[in-house]
Design a protein around this nucleic acid. Structure first.
Length: 530
DNA sequence: AGTGCAGTTGACTTT
DNA sequence: TAAAGTCAACTGCAC
């Protein structure tokens, strides 16, 4: 380890943490010496299958405000296009050795590899790279039992204020950025005009309005897409890009709670306290899920529970699977509520949690598709795509974790429950605007009468038989795994005690998802209520 | 007034 | 963050 000299250049690498408050690397780097704040626009990152134009556009709005903040302090954010180690090598050639600062990032497989390449480069050049925690996620976590405690410990300290003093390089002292602009960004998709805007200002305004009034009925209004768009915090994309930190949210919630507790109970808006509690628990889960991917990056690519391997086709899609996937992706499954949710998502980049679960469940069960392709499609549609939440959720909603109960949604029941009048359906599925009454939930019931819109597709699958078939198959596999697990447990109790062999048996049992200890079930389980 | 009965509700189990 | 089935208790009502 090299000592950090007071005069050494401090390179601050902004990743998905586009803010200047509660930013430990910024504070530490600013204390240590002259600062070069940097954003690397990496073409390879945007070429990944989970990346979308809307993500980059949202990030750039945040970067604009970040740049303005540095400019108000005499500096500027250095934005450069290129490959990370190439960019760092250029800085090294220009400035000599430097210190590198960033937050820890729980990203996708690509960013994980990129970070390892950067770490290797740093080691080779004698550059010290300090990565600091950015939320409740614990790197190299050994003992999951204590995680909840660690989360609280991370959240308790007050959010860090922006550094009072910093000496950023002046804009004219920054390296030319245009050299690497030769590397183009290829994108096939379009930005979404109706998506949320990025930037710290937006994030703070959303947090304020959510706690001031929008979120009072969060608890009861989060389930329906009609009410959720306003009653939910809408902070997820900002948390994903770090224009707001989880800790800032948690402290704002605690602050709000203490204000309400100081008030007579009958003066508090109905449901507001329950909503606040519910929201706080979600901030907890936010990190809880990201922790899963941090601890097991392979969750992005394969079943957490290998016992479910081969249940659905993992190879090239058959023609019929492709037809079902296309219908789902384009919002033309013939199930009005599914299609309305998908089309609304296309347009806005957001849909409430329950409807996300329904969309994923529909693809996985009724359409019997492996989760990987649908998950990648949704990753591009969700403005708030966060790998650490996305893949564990996709797997849970597909029933391949083995530790969660199967949640097989009935899209017609959801439609009747969450959109009884068909308002949301008619908003996003114009073909059905002329359909009156409850037929809007099941237009196929209109038969071939003139009341049935000709331009709306027939259902891609028969709901009853597809659901039934999925239910049988998933439970058969669960039972099969349980049987093999039981056999494994018997073997562990009564089988050979030959040293080494038992160890192997336990390891493979764990790989198959064997969970025989009830304490472990509650530890790993995610029966997240409320 | 008590009885029989169809329909409803809620707790619980199964898939 | 499920849905469907089972069963017993309950309800309203006719007689």
């Amino acid at each position: 380890m090299l000592p950090t000299l007071p005069s050494m250049l401090q390179v601050l690498w902004f990743k998905r943490d586009l803010r200047w408050t509660d930013h430990a690397p910024l504070v530490r780097a600013a204390q240590a010496g002259p600062l070069l704040p940097m954003w690397i626009d990496e073409p390879a990152a945007w070429a990944q299958r989970d990346a979308a134009t809307q993500h980059r556009a949202f990030a750039h709005e945040g970067l604009g405000e970040l740049d303005a903040w540095f400019r108000s302090r005499g500096g500027a954010l250095w934005r450069v296009r290129g490959e990370a180690t190439t960019v760092l090598a250029r800085l090294h050639a220009l400035y000599g050795s430097f210190a590198l600062w960033s937050h820890e990032e729980t990203g996708n497989g690509w960013s994980f590899d990129r970070d390892r390449a950067v770490a290797r480069w740093c080691t080779g050049q004698g550059v010290v790279w300090r990565e600091l925690p950015c939320n409740g996620v614990v790197r190299r976590l050994r003992d999951r039992d204590r995680w909840s405690q660690l989360w609280t410990q991370r959240m308790e300290p007050l959010p860090l204020p922006a550094p009072g003093h910093l000496t950023p390089l002046a804009p004219h002292e920054l390296p030319e950025a245009h050299h690497d602009d030769a590397v183009p960004i290829h994108s096939l998709d379009a930005d979404k005009p109706l998506r949320q805007r990025g930037g710290r200002g937006q994030a703070v305004a959303l947090l304020d309005s959510f706690l001031a009034w929008r979120g009072h009925r969060y608890r009861t209004e989060m389930s329906s897409p009609l009410t959720a768009a306003e009653a939910c915090s809408r902070l997820s994309a900002h948390l994903a890009w770090g224009t707001l930190s989880v800790r800032e949210c948690v402290h704002a919630v605690w602050q709000r709670r203490s204000e309400w507790l100081a008030m007579p109970a009958d003066q508090r808006p109905a449901g507001a306290m329950a909503s606040l509690r519910s929201f706080e628990s979600r901030l907890h889960w936010h990190c809880h899920f990201i922790q899963k991917l941090e601890s097991e990056p392979a969750i992005e690519f394969r079943n957490v529970n290998r016992g479910f391997d081969g249940l659905r086709n993992e190879g090239a899609l058959t023609a019929d699977e492709q037809r079902r996937l296309d219908a789902w992706c384009t919002g033309r499954t013939g199930f009005p509520f599914v299609d309305a949710c998908m089309r609304g998502l296309h347009a806005t980049g957001w849909i409430n949690f329950r409807m996300r679960a329904m969309l994923m469940s529909f693809a996985s069960y009724q359409l019997w598709l492996h989760w990987r392709e649908p998950a990648l499609f949704l990753a591009r549609q969700f403005l708030d795509y966060e790998p650490g939440i996305h893949y564990p959720q996709a797997q849970m909603q597909s029933g391949v974790t083995g530790i969660n109960t199967i949640r097989l949604y009935n899209p017609v029941k959801q439609s009747r429950d969450q959109d009884p009048e068909g308002v949301f359906i008619r908003r996003w599925v114009p073909e059905l605007r002329g359909v009156t009454g409850s037929a809007v939930h099941e237009p196929w019931l209109l038969g071939s009468t003139h009341l049935r819109p000709a331009d709306y597709p027939d259902p891609v699958v028969d709901l009853r038989s597809a659901s039934q078939q999925a239910r049988v198959l998933i439970h058969a596999r669960k039972a099969d795994i349980a049987t093999r697990q039981e056999a494994r447990a018997v073997y562990d109790r009564h089988g050979s005690r030959h040293p080494g062999r038992e160890h192997t048996a336990r390891r493979s049992a764990r790989r198959a998802g064997a969970v025989s200890d009830p304490a472990q079930i509650s530890l790993l389980g995610d029966e997240e209520e409320e």
